[in-house]
Design a protein around this nucleic acid. Structure first.
Length: 696
DNA sequence: CTAGGGTTAG
């Protein structure tokens, strides 16, 4: 069967078993390495030069060899000799692909020139002349399909309509509509549609799904709906793709209910929805916060016998990240690998985000290492995600290493987020010099310090007991015209709990400037020793009501610490009591018939000591009332491994309990728990009472 | 890439 020259030279028939390449082809074309293209190039007038020599004939003898000389042709003149290529071989695949690529590259070049030429018929025609006289309909579609200029594309369409015999004109309209979509130009798309109708060309599902997705990308979901509803009046019934686009449109518009009801409709109409639609549905559930809905969709998809794609997995992983369910992300990832899927860049990005959000530092680091090993480049956002997690979990050395690798990478430069994370990391780990160096580097790169950076620096200097530098940094904030926020004030307050008494005044005035209400409460605590407890409670209560829920506990902890440092236990008790009343602290004490417990997990040291003091008083009162203690008493300090300090609450508490001669002992099997029995506790509390050292 | 669906985030 000889190749038909009049048909498209590229439609290499799929059912043929062999290609045959005529030796007439110049040797450089035998390998079908396309010659260097010097645009403009006429690609159609002599297509035989590079393609039509691939002829297709049965050649059974050579079935087991990839390339061989055809014995029948060997003896004839060189002009008739052929090289036979098994079409199933990789060689044949390359030949076919190369010829295709060559044609495609030429048409691409034409599309690019049409994109940048003036929207004038003559200019457009000038470029299209290079296609030659006989233009194949498919070539016209390819050119338009690769254009992205909505001004010239209609002119190109017009040219083809005039010059090419079109059997399926709707296709050319559809690809031109795609150009409008690329440019998010719904008006032009609608105009084009009107023109189609005027010319009597019947739109099809492709026409509608393109316009609908155009409306979606223009963030005009109501327009998308309008077009969707218009379909039946043009004799089109929505199909699987239309449903998919509409589901996504509703999802993007935040109309989750409509998206899901459309999914139901598609199912009852028995459309076979594919993995991409499910990926869309999972995304909709994910962005609306219904994470179990995501998993259900995944199960439903599998139940329908639809094989997931990498994208489905990526969407699921992303949803599990948002849901802060890193363990589920891990399971899905394992599942994906077991099924033989190759993770993509998006897979790793989703995992990295999921682990970072959940502060799974080690796992995030492993993802990073795997990406590097596979040569996948991280973006600035991903680097920053990783570094901010490392700041949270205290991976100082790892952060330093990755910061360096980021600076070495070709496609990334640190931004203010990056510097901010690094300065935070150095500040929290007490590396004052490194923090200052990084600040200078940041300034050198042209970034102003922001409130995050200055907050970190204040912590840094506070920890190093450099009160004057704290004040200097505070002044810098004001000079930069930045308004101190609640977190910043919280840090100033926290510094006050760490510095000697005689330096407190320096920071009190800073705090007063930053937040007068807080300043007022602080001054009351430090300076008015014999003020009424009720007044403190009233003022502090007002303060707590004024500030955000997220900083309340931090403020309360600091104020109590300040009292403890100043030996004002009674005042500390009043503040703790206030904190309990306002539910800043919850479940500090718990009682079951067998065990009474004190939970100190999110309390600062001062607050914890205060809570212990109150608890001991409560226990003593129980005994005074002639009641029994339960068999077991326990104090839970939490595991005590604070990210940036070796000695957490557990360690400090252990020595404190020893000082008090309290009979509590660290539970060997329960980390962070100190336990004692009824008997031991009772005799200890009674000896304290008789010694007169019990509660004041 | 081959006339229709989504894609990269703090």
């Amino acid at each position: 069967m000889a190749f038909n020259l009049t048909s498209s030279p590229f439609s290499v028939s799929q059912d043929s078993h062999l290609f045959c390449i005529s030796s007439l082809v110049p040797s450089h074309l035998l390998h079908l390495k396309p010659p260097a293209l010097n645009f403009p190039l006429k690609i159609n007038p002599k297509p035989s030069v590079y393609v039509t020599h691939i002829s297709l004939q049965e050649q059974p003898q050579t079935s087991n060899s990839e390339i061989s000389q055809n014995p029948d042709e060997k003896t004839s003149s060189s002009s008739k000799s052929y090289i036979w290529v098994n079409p199933k071989s990789s060689r044949a695949h390359h030949l076919r692909k190369d010829s295709y690529d060559f044609r495609y590259a030429s048409l691409l070049k034409i599309a690019k020139s049409l994109d940048i030429c003036d929207p004038l018929e003559a200019d457009v025609a000038g470029i299209l002349e290079t296609l030659g006289g006989r233009i194949v309909e498919q070539d016209a579609a390819v050119v338009l399909n690769n254009m992205s200029n909505p001004e010239t594309a209609p002119l190109v369409l017009k040219y083809f309509q005039k010059r090419v015999k079109l059997s399926k004109e709707v296709i050319l309209y559809n690809v031109t509509l795609k150009v409008c979509r690329k440019c998010k130009d719904l008006d032009k798309a609608e105009k084009l549609f009107d023109e189609m109708i005027e010319k009597g060309i019947k739109p099809d599902n492709v026409t509608f799904s393109t316009i609908i997705s155009c409306a979606r990308q223009c963030s005009l979901p109501e327009k998308a709906v309008e077009w969707f509803e218009k379909m039946p009046s043009f004799g089109c019934e929505p199909d699987d793709v239309t449903y998919s686009v509409m589901i996504d449109s509703y999802g993007k518009a935040g109309n989750v209910d409509m998206a899901l009801s459309l999914y139901d409709r598609a199912r009852t109409e028995k459309w076979r929805l594919d993995a991409l639609t499910f990926s869309t549905l999972i995304k909709i559930y994910g962005t609306s916060g219904n994470y179990d809905g995501c998993l259900n969709m995944y199960e439903e998809m599998k139940a329908l016998g639809i094989r997931p794609t990498v994208m489905v997995y990526n969407t699921l992983l992303d949803a599990m990240g948002r849901a802060r369910r890193p363990w589920q992300a891990k399971n899905i990832y394992k599942d994906m690998l077991n099924k033989g899927f190759e993770p993509s860049w998006g897979t790793y990005a989703a995992l990295l985000r999921a682990f970072s959000k959940a502060r799974y530092g080690e796992d995030a680091l492993n993802v990073y290492r795997e990406m590097k090993q596979k040569g996948l480049e991280l973006t600035v956002v991903l680097y920053n995600t990783l570094l901010s997690t490392f700041a949270d979990v205290g991976f100082t050395d790892e952060a330093v290493e990755i910061f360096r690798e980021m600076k070495d990478s070709s496609n990334c430069t640190p931004d203010s987020w990056t510097y901010s994370s690094m300065i935070t990391i150095f500040s929290c780990s007490g590396k004052v010099l490194e923090a200052e160096e990084t600040l200078n580097e940041m300034l050198g790169a042209g970034f102003q310090p922001n409130i995050y950076v200055l907050t970190s620096l204040i912590q840094c200097y506070g920890k190093a007991n450099r009160t004057d530098d704290v004040v200097r940094t505070f002044d810098r904030l004001l000079e930069l015209g930045i308004t101190p926020d609640e977190r910043f004030c919280g840090c100033l307050l926290n510094v006050m709990t760490q510095i000697p008494r005689e330096e407190l005044g320096k920071l009190t005035s800073c705090i007063e400037k930053a937040n007068s209400k807080l300043g007022h409460v602080v001054r009351l605590l430090i300076e008015s020793e014999d003020i009424e407890g009720e007044i403190i409670k009233k003022e502090a209560g007002q303060l707590f009501n004024d500030i955000g829920v997220d900083v309340r506990k931090a403020y309360c902890n600091c104020l109590i610490d300040l009292c403890i440092n100043l030996n004002l236990m009674e005042r500390a008790c009043e503040l703790l009591d206030l904190g309990l009343t306002l539910e800043i602290y919850t479940d500090v004490q718990s009682r079951t018939p067998t065990q009474w417990s004190l939970h100190l997990k999110s309390l600062s040291l001062g607050a914890a000591l205060t809570a212990l003091h109150i608890w001991m008083n409560d226990l003593s009162r129980t005994l005074e009332n002639g009641e029994e203690l339960p068999p077991l008493l326990g104090i839970n300090t939490g595991h005590g491994k604070h990210k940036y300090s070796e000695k957490g609450l557990a360690g400090v508490f252990e020595s404190h309990l020893k000082e008090l001669k309290a009979p509590f002992h660290e539970a060997p099997d329960k980390v962070g728990w100190f336990l004692t029995t009824n008997e031991a506790a009772t005799s200890w509390l009674e000896s304290r009472r008789s010694n007169g050292v019990a509660a004041s």
